[in-house]
Amino acid sequence: MKLGLSIGYSGAHLDLPVALVQRAEALGYDSVWTAEAYGTDAVTPLAYLAAVTKRIRLGTGIMQLAARTPANAAMCAATVDALAGGGRFIAGLGVSGPQIVEGWYGEPWGRPYYRLKDYTEIMRKIFRREAPVVHEGREISLPYTGEGALGVGKPLKSILHMNPDIPIWLGTGNEATVKLTGEIADGWLALGFVPGSLPEYLPWLEEGFRRAEKATGRPKTRADFTIQASVHVEVTEDVSAGLAKLKPEVALYVGGMGHRDKNFHKDMMIRRGFGEAADRIQDLYLAGRKEEAIAAVPDEWVDWKSLVGPPARIRERWRPWAESGADAITVRSRQPEAIEVMAQAAGLNGPGE
């Protein structure tokens, strides 16, 4: 089992935990992951980390599609990969949500399934440099010929001779997009994944593998694909206090990160059997009663998705994650002791493990 470290995005002030990332690399962590919402971006911190690390892979978890065109995403990925010495960058992509896509980026929500498909296919064409890029998609086409076009767009091929095999992983969670992930991606940033959930997702992934083989004539199997799940880790002697510390984020995402009728995080909580709590959290949050929304988050929900408590409890509760069928687990924590405890639990012994 490989481990990753998520450093997410910064709050009000930029806080890049360089020493924590370097320690994770020394312990044998496989990857470090950044994120973006509507503050710090996901790519720039990885360029900095490329200069102060040697081996750890650098992943975006995720680049929001609306934040940049597929050509720009490919350029960013190729540039950081080259700065890092090649073979270290993972282009993790996702659609975000309609409030951010339309409210922050000023882009239409459109059809996310086809946007993911077009975006990924264009990036691969750019990486491979086999010909000037032409793409006729349902959501994105190159050259652009839509409203406002002059009609003089020219197919181009990247000046930079980049790594043609930069991996593209997708952050997805519903049936249609997980199938698409199995079909077109190299890996899956598994939204909503918990121990015991693989039987729900595996048939979707396998359908995607079948589609890929049909489209390319080349077999694609589970062995050709990476599942990367994630888990919050909080080392504390007070389990209740540790769970409470993680509840504000749950309330934010379930209650306010998305429209009332289109919120993936709420939908996932409902699918996992916590529908009544999900409805109450959202109602309270949208009514401006945020503290009550936080208090409405069940301990059981947080504990299921997280590893919280003294080191012995975390090691014990790690076993189901280690046996979950995921290939790697991203540790979501900025606690130095959490990074150490998880390395011990996973049996890491330094670089190369």
Score class of each variant (00 low, 15 high):
198 L>D: 02
237 E>K: 09
177 T>I: 11
201 Y>D: 10
172 T>G: 07
147 E>N: 11
245 K>Y: 07
196 G>R: 01
214 K>M: 06
174 N>S: 14
223 A>C: 13
230 S>R: 12
209 F>D: 06
231 V>D: 00
149 A>W: 05
156 L>M: 10
188 W>G: 06
244 A>Y: 08
211 R>K: 14
250 V>R: 06
240 S>Y: 06
227 I>T: 02
233 V>L: 06
160 L>W: 14
206 E>P: 06
206 E>I: 08
176 A>M: 11
213 E>A: 14
179 K>A: 14
197 S>V: 01
182 G>D: 12
237 E>R: 11
236 T>Q: 08
190 A>L: 09
178 V>Q: 08
205 L>F: 10
207 E>Y: 05
155 P>S: 05
248 P>A: 04
217 G>M: 05
159 I>T: 14
151 G>K: 10
221 T>I: 05
210 R>G: 00
236 T>I: 09
149 A>S: 15
234 E>G: 01
220 K>M: 04
202 L>K: 12
202 L>H: 05
212 A>E: 07
201 Y>V: 13
237 E>T: 10
192 G>L: 03
201 Y>K: 15
148 G>N: 09
246 L>C: 03
193 F>P: 01
151 G>L: 10
169 W>R: 00
243 L>H: 01
165 D>A: 11
196 G>M: 02
212 A>H: 09
203 P>V: 08
178 V>S: 10
189 L>M: 14
147 E>V: 14
174 N>M: 12
223 A>Q: 15
192 G>Q: 03
162 M>W: 05
179 K>Y: 07
182 G>S: 11
195 P>R: 03
182 G>N: 11
219 P>V: 10
208 G>Q: 13
186 D>N: 14
164 P>G: 08
165 D>M: 04
151 G>V: 12
235 V>C: 08
235 V>Y: 02
181 T>S: 10
215 A>Y: 10
150 L>R: 12
205 L>T: 12
189 L>W: 03
